[in-house]
Each structure stands twice: as C-alpha cells, then as structure tokens.
Simulated scan of single mutants.
Amino acid sequence: MQLFRHENRERNHHTRRVYAMFELVYTCVDFSAAVCFFVGSVLFFWQETETAAIWLFVVGSLLFAAKPSLRLAREIKLARMGKLETLAERMEG
C-alpha cells in the first residue's frame, strides 16, 4: 500500500470524489480552527471572557490536531480502494 501518491486520487471517479470530500472536510476543520483561535484571541482582551477564550483555544487545538488525522485517513482509504480495484480485476481475469 503506497500512501500520498497522486495516482491514488486520480484512479477513477470514485477516488476523485473521496478525495474531494476529504478536502472539503479538511478545509472546514481548518477554517473552524482558525475562527476558534481568532475569536479566542479577541476574548482575551477582557478578563470576564477569559475562560471562554481558553476553551476556544482548546477546541481550536483539537481541530488543528484532527487535520493530519484526516489526511492519513484519506490516504489509507484511497490506497485501499486501489487494492480492492486490483483484486476485482484479478477475480475477473
């Protein structure tokens, strides 16, 4: 199984769709993390909103940690899709 290969995502319509869906989720997670950090930073200006700011930083950190997990999950799924395709071709032949 070869991960992070351009050929895996361009193999067929299904792999392109999986790649696009993962990229959409990845972008939403990235944007959400940035918003959490930005709003959290602004909330640190006032002592009464400090706890909310801390929680936003924690949530933002978790979202940033999810990004490499999403990329790895995407690559594993794409690589497995290739193995299933190869197996199906062998069974047909």
Rank of each mutant, 00 (worst) to 15 (best):
L3I: 03
L3F: 04
L3S: 00
F4D: 00
F4K: 00
R5S: 05
R5Q: 09
N8D: 02
R9L: 08
R9F: 04
E10K: 09
E10N: 06
N12Q: 01
N12R: 01
N12F: 00
H13A: 09
H13K: 06
T15E: 10
T15Y: 06
R16D: 05
R17W: 14
R17S: 15
F22G: 06
E23K: 09
L24T: 15
L24H: 10
V29H: 07
V29K: 00
F31Y: 13
F31H: 14
A33I: 04
A34E: 04
V35L: 13
V35F: 12
C36M: 13
F37K: 10
F38A: 12
F38Q: 06
F38I: 15
V39C: 09
V42K: 09
V42D: 01
L43T: 05
Q47W: 05
E48H: 15
T49V: 07
A52P: 10
A52N: 11
I54H: 15
V59G: 12
V59K: 11
V59F: 15
L62R: 07
L63M: 10
L63Q: 07
F64K: 14
A65F: 10
A66E: 08
K67F: 00
S69T: 14
L70Q: 03
L72Y: 04
E75V: 05
E75I: 05
E75Q: 09
I76P: 02
I76Q: 11
I76Y: 05
K77M: 08
K77D: 09
A79Q: 03
R80L: 12
R80E: 14
R80A: 07
M81N: 02
K83S: 13
T86L: 11
R90S: 13
R90P: 07
M91V: 14
E92K: 12
G93V: 07
